[in-house]
Design a protein around this nucleic acid. Structure first.
Lengths: 99, 99
DNA sequence: AACTTTGTTCGGTATATTACGAACAAGGAA
DNA sequence: TTCCTTGTTCGTAATATACCGAACAAAGTT
């Protein structure tokens, strides 16, 4: 965490979102969920060249940063975009690119 | 590098840009350059809480991914946005968030 | 209760990232 | 030529990331 007021909270937040998006697997999941409303991680394990434990870690990262959310639908978990934060990220990136 | 056609080239590229943007220092530099047309890294060293060698590494990363470019203006180097790639990144992120 | 399915956590390993200071290179100024 | 300024590269260290397989936990099925 940078502590010198040169860097704004906004920049920190944008960077945090960008970092979470900075991996092909996570980018894939985000794009999928942004078009498809929801998915189950079992589906992802089949499509993606990684084992479930690794996928779980990537999903956790996306959850931790707030870009997705999971809802238990036993025995599976349904993932979707966290619309509020997704919108925030969209705004942050739009502002960045338009300035 | 993921090699299983699930993940598209576009997603790989977007993730690559996102990763480069995924650090507060680099985000700061990008935002500055996107509004200000150019800057010199000496200015950045004064504003930012890092030493010049660390800054040099961050700038190299942004250069390597193609988001900025440097022009020698001895004895300094003038940095600006690489407009072509910046536009590409903008497009990729816009598409991602709008889909 | 025993089994199955689904996903997380743990332990371990390999590689990448971030950071610093020292040393080096390039070029202008004295 | 000898400084000085600027920025890169090198060596090093601490921490983070990415990945796997095995073990574990939760909850529905048989």
């Amino acid at each position: 965490m940078i502590k010198k007021e040169t860097i704004t909270e906004k920049q920190e937040k944008t960077a945090r979102y960008a970092k979470a998006m900075g991996h092909p697997i996570r980018m894939y999941v985000l794009e999928l969920l942004s078009k498809q409303s929801c998915c189950y991680s079992g589906d992802l394990t089949e499509e993606l060249p990684i084992v479930k434990s690794t996928l779980s870690q990537h999903l956790k990262e996306l959850k931790d940063v707030g870009l997705i959310q999971g809802e238990i639908e036993a025995p599976r978990i349904k993932y979707c975009i966290n619309k509020e934060n997704w919108k925030e990220a969209q705004l942050l990136f739009t502002e960045l690119f338009e300035s």
